[in-house]
Each structure stands twice: as structure tokens, then as C-alpha cells.
Amino acid sequence: MIELTVYGIVFGSIISLGAIGLTLVFGIIRFANFAHGDLMSSGAYVALFMVTSALAWIGIPDTNFGMLSFGWRMLIAFPVAMFAVAAIAIALDRILYRKLRAKKSHAVIMAMSSLGAAFILRMLILIFWGADSLFYRPGMLRPAIEFPLNIKIRPDQILILIVVFSLVVLLHLYLQKTKMGKAMRATADNMELALVSGIDTERVIMMTWGLGGGLAAAGGILYGIDVQLHPYMGWNFLIPLFAATILGTVGNIYGALVGGLVIGIAQQVSTAFLMPTYKPAVAFILMILILLFRPKGIFGGKE
């Protein structure tokens, strides 16, 4: 049980990275981005391309760091993939969402177009990598360390938690301390007043997509390291992503973090009672319950 909770925290922290991006984008442009899960897969696959092709080709050695399942190649691929997916997210905004925004399109139209974007990303992955599950390091044994209370955790998982925690702290500092971060919060509060104050809101929107895309990529790669890569991974993330976002009150990044952890733990712990194939249903049922009983989420309702 404790072990399942720990696995839930690991999975939940990955979901949190996606949910934070989703909630950031929603906070500013107010539409449900159904392509967010596939931005996560895109990150995982860009990193795969780097690790197995690009970096191998330049001759970066394929060694591991200590007990971890990856080495220099992943260390380089990780930030590169974050930037690449940030660029993809910004490009999607430029060629798709910005035009719809300019026409003052309804949020449903925006959401539908993001569904289209999701299909495109997923099909591109299918075309280049096929439909099978892949690993960053196929065939490698991944031993777990044994902790007291009979908890077995892989070193990779500990590192995942450290990475997620660091990214969240960095994001917090960015939003609280930098001029752009404050402008992002201001724009989420009141876009018209932001414009009136001289804030270049189009630039803020661009930065928001970049941040959301980068965090999504990080989440996707970490999932790939923890479990495996699959073209439909992002699609399967969508329900937990939205459940986490709604639970944590849409627009609230700290809420998304908590929401992700709760959903992750609930999904993993449920496997003690249910068949693991029902895991996605747990997030779905939780989402329905939240929408029925607390539609504004745990941090909503004050204003």
C-alpha cells in the first residue's frame, strides 16, 4: 500500500507537470487544450530521437549515470526536447489558435481545433516510430533499491521526483519574481487591463505556450524513463490531466500540482482493489465526482 502510494506520487508528479501547463494555458486563453497530452508524447519522442539517433550520430557515449537507466545522452536530450516542444506549442498557437482568437472564435471551436492538432501530432509519431511500445534503453534491467517497510523504489523514480520538484520551484520563482512571470499572472487575471497597462499580451501568450510545452515535454520524457513510450501515451494522459486540473481549480498552478498528485495516488492505489486496466477509469470517475460536487475545485470559490 505504501509502495503503491509512492508509485502514485511518481506518476502523479508527472501528471502534475502536464496539468500545470494545461492550467497555465487555460488561465490565459481560456480554452481546453486537448493537444496537451500529445505535446507530452511529442517531448518523449523528440528525446527518443535525440538519444537513439542524433546524439549517437555525433558520438556521445551511451553510458549510464550510476544506478540510473540513462546517461549523458538523456541529460542533453532532456532540455533540447523541452525547447523543441515549446517551439511546437508556440508554432501551433501561431498557425492555428491565434487566428481563431483574432476571429473571436468560441472556446468550443478552439478546443475542437486543438483536438485536430492532437491527432496530427499523434499520427506523426505513428508514422515515424510505429505503433509499438518503445524504451529509451531497451532490455536493460532496472533494479530497485529496498527501503524500510518493504518499499522498493527504482533510482530513476527518485530522480523523477527531484526533477519535478526542481521544475516546480523554478516555475514558482519565474512567476513570482520576474517581470514576464508577473505579467503572465496579470494577463491571466484580466487580459483587457493587461493590454491597457501596456503589456504585450501576444508575447505573454507566446511565453505561456512555451512554458506549457516545455513542462509537457519534461513530463512525457519522465514517463518514458519510468515506464515506456507509446504513441497513445499522451491521449491516455488526457483524462488524468483534466481531472488534476479541475480538482486543483482551473487556472491555479499550485492546485494543478496537488491535483496531479491526488489523481496519481488514487490511480495507483486503486490497483490494490481493482484490475490495473481499470486505472484510467479511476481518474475519470474522480473527474465526474469533482464536477458534480465541487466544480470549482479545491482552491476555488473564494472570489
Partner: peptide, 15 residues
């Protein structure tokens, strides 16, 4: 709607 409600007074002025 002439303030940013979730920002502090100082942050409002900075904006």
C-alpha cells in the same frame, strides 16, 4: 475590473 485581483498592490503598480 481595473485591478489585477490575484496580484499584490505592489505587483499591480509594477504592471
Amino acid at each position: 475590473d481595473n485591478v489585477f485581483p490575484s496580484l499584490t498592490i505592489q505587483e499591480n503598480l509594477e504592471m
